[in-house]
């Protein structure tokens, strides 16, 4: 398929409008493919800001770029209007220490993130710091939003934030970008104490829902769609009242819904439905539940009239 002049001009305007542009699957905070995540991880550690385009959201751009760049895969990185390469080339340039030059960027100056450390958490950090001979307090936020609080060595690229009187926290540039706005608390429970982090940048996750919680939601009349991902054969054996079979028509209907809509996924034991639920989180839905234990758990806990099989 030949690239239309209009699309070519549109793509040209995107790569010319920003110093660095990454055409990727997903977004910077929520990459939808491992190759895109790898390149985001490398760029985050190097650049305070760059432009990304989610090719999954625009099939015309996705197809057009393959011709525009003469490159069949994603991600695709552009700098100063010129194609730099795909994931392999970015990794290779990075490993050789040549990526900054290829992108034409100076040493990164990363904005310090806003971090809120509660008095309780600060007290625990201070106590631990007294034993951490010469090491600094580090917070790492991986591109998959896993957290690591530790004492370690400072590095030259670190962003340093004073989080409380006399208490400083060190973050690599990528972590600094992802941590902005995070609150760190220390909570003591029956099992001992632990840090809790609440980060507004974290993408939505599938929430587990017990049968009793689902029953309560349905009783309250909370608007939700209960999606049965099993087969029609299984639905003939047992069905939760109000559930709908996930077929092509329902998938189409769901994908047209507001991304704030509540979706509950259900299967036999809660495994297949989790995969389906994650798929819809990937499509941007923010309130997605998986029924723990599936219809079997529902039958055992809530409604014994639903046959088990």
């Amino acid at each position: 398929m030949a690239l239309s002049e209009a699309l070519r001009a549109h793509l040209r305007s995107i790569v010319d409008a920003h110093h660095v542009v990454l055409f990727m699957k997903g977004t910077r905070l929520s990459p939808q493919c491992g190759f895109s995540a790898t390149v985001v991880g490398i760029l985050d550690a190097m650049l305070p800001a760059y432009h990304t385009v989610d090719v999954l959201a625009d099939p015309a751009v996705r197809d057009g770029l393959k011709d525009f760049s003469e490159w069949p895969t994603f991600p695709q990185l552009y700098a100063r209007g010129a194609f730099v390469g795909g994931a392999d080339i970015v990794k290779e340039l990075h490993a050789r220490g040549e990526l900054q030059a290829a992108l034409g960027v100076a040493e990164a100056t990363v904005k310090a993130p806003a971090l809120h450390v509660t008095a309780k958490a600060a007290a625990v950090f201070r106590e631990a710091a007294a034993d951490a001979d010469g090491l600094v307090l580090r917070l790492e936020v991986s591109s998959g939003f896993r957290y690591d609080l530790s004492f370690g060595d400072a590095t030259p690229l670190d962003v340093v934030v004073t989080v409380a009187d006399g208490l400083r926290m060190y973050l690599d540039p990528g972590s600094a970008y992802r941590a902005d706005g995070t609150t760190i608390d220390y909570v003591v429970g029956a099992q001992g104490g632990g840090f809790t982090l609440s980060n507004p940048n974290e993408p939505a996750k599938v929430k587990q829902l017990s049968p009793l919680q689902l029953e309560a939601m349905l009783k309250e009349g909370k608007p939700l769609t209960l999606v049965d991902v099993r087969t029609t054969t299984e639905r003939d054996l047992a069905v939760i009242e109000g559930s709908r079979l996930l077929d092509a028509a329902l998938e189409h209907e769901l994908l047209a819904m507001d991304r704030g809509a509540a979706l509950v996924f259900q299967c036999h034991h809660g495994v297949r439905s989790l995969a389906a639920a994650e798929h819809f989180v990937g499509h941007g839905f923010r309130e997605v539940y998986n029924l723990q234990g599936g219809i079997d758990g529902w039958s055992v806990t809530v409604d014994p009239d639903v046959p088990r099989y």
């Binding site: 003469e70 069949p72 895969t73 194609f83 390469g85 795909g86 290779e92």
Partner: peptide
């Protein structure tokens, strides 16, 4: 690297076309 990889991608483009392409991804080239 870009032009070298383009030569290879150009040669296998027909195996990578479309959503059901037999070659879904070149993990490393």
């Amino acid at each position: 690297m870009v032009d070298s990889q383009r030569l290879v991608y150009g040669a296998i483009a027909h195996l990578m076309k479309g959503d059901n392409a037999p070659v879904h991804a070149i993990d490393s080239l």
